[in-house]
Amino acid sequence: MGTFHDHMGELHGITVVVRQLDGNTWIGRCHSEDSVEVILHDADQHVSQESDESPEDWLKRARQMGHWPRVSTVRVPRERVKVLVRLSDVTNGGELPAS
């Protein structure tokens, strides 16, 4: 029982990790993804050049406890997306699985 939106795709409502080609990483609840963009809600971003924490440590922490919803909605252009995976598929060490 609950609210379902099956027509939105299999990742709708699922917490995902988006690794960009520039190495920066988003975590958020996927609204939709297509050939144009990935839309995330309640997202947080790891910017490699600005963070003291490695992306692996950041993902490891998020995998264990979740992520902070710092950005209400973000649209990541598809051409910037290197990897799109479920957060639950990130390894215990914070490494991304092969997409």
């Binding site: 029982m1 609950g2 609210t3 379902f4 709708h12 409502g13």
Partner: peptide, 11 residues
């Protein structure tokens, strides 16, 4: 929560 993606299995 009302979310079917997750709460539907959680309860």
């Amino acid at each position: 929560s009302v979310c079917g993606c997750a709460a539907g299995g959680a309860r």
